[in-house]
């Protein structure tokens, strides 16, 4: 079913909306959840929570691209769940590895000033991502938005794994520089 029709079902408060969403996007959303959570049961619950969140948000939202809309919900729900898990359950996911990668460039913890500047940080990150050359932008989003493995990212970007790692390394350093220039205390 086309996205527009699925969204219309949500707006009509038809339960078919969830059935059709699951039919079309379950695999897609499960992949996003699986990159963040290593536990299959957790993944399934996060995807189900995504359907509920979609049901609660439409109306009033009318997303243009349903996959992106749902994917963002799944991503955040999965990250929230990741943070509640104990350290043993956190191991092994691509999200955990992404955090490790960022560890070298950015100190752990959060200062009160930064907490206040969350919206500024959003804007700074968005600006940074836009400033990256096309290839680097794709690799960066593939790794740090979708949490695809470096090998997977390299595969769909048509570059070697070594080059993808190299691009990510450069991008992290540039991000640090960018955030410092924007006044963030790192």
């Amino acid at each position: 079913m086309e996205d527009e029709k699925i969204v219309a079902l949500y707006w009509q408060r038809s339960e078919d909306a969830i059935r059709e969403t699951a039919k079309k996007y379950e695999a897609y959303l499960t992949k996003i959840a699986r990159n963040i959570l290593s536990d299959p049961e957790d993944c399934g619950e996060c995807v189900n929570d995504t359907y509920l969140a979609a049901w609660n948000s439409m109306p009033e939202h009318r997303p243009g691209v349903l996959s992106t809309y749902l994917g963002k919900i799944t991503r955040q729900i999965s990250i929230d769940r990741f943070r509640k898990r104990n350290s043993a359950k956190r191991r092994g996911s691509e999200y955990a590895l992404s955090l490790d990668e960022l560890e070298d460039t950015f100190a752990d913890g959060e200062t009160p000033e930064q907490a206040l500047d969350a919206k500024l940080l959003d804007a700074a990150i968005d600006g940074f991502v836009r400033s990256l050359p096309e290839e680097a932008r794709r690799v960066f989003i593939g790794r740090y938005y979708f949490f695809d493995s470096v090998k997977t990212v390299a595969g769909y970007c048509g570059i070697s794994e070594a080059k993808a790692k190299s691009i990510l390394y450069r991008a992290r350093l540039k991000l640090r520089e960018h955030l410092e220039k924007e006044g963030f205390i790192l």
Partner: peptide, 10 residues
């Protein structure tokens, strides 16, 4: 900070 960055990426 790294968590905030990944949140902002979202």
């Amino acid at each position: 900070m790294k968590d905030s960055i990944l949140d902002s990426m979202g």
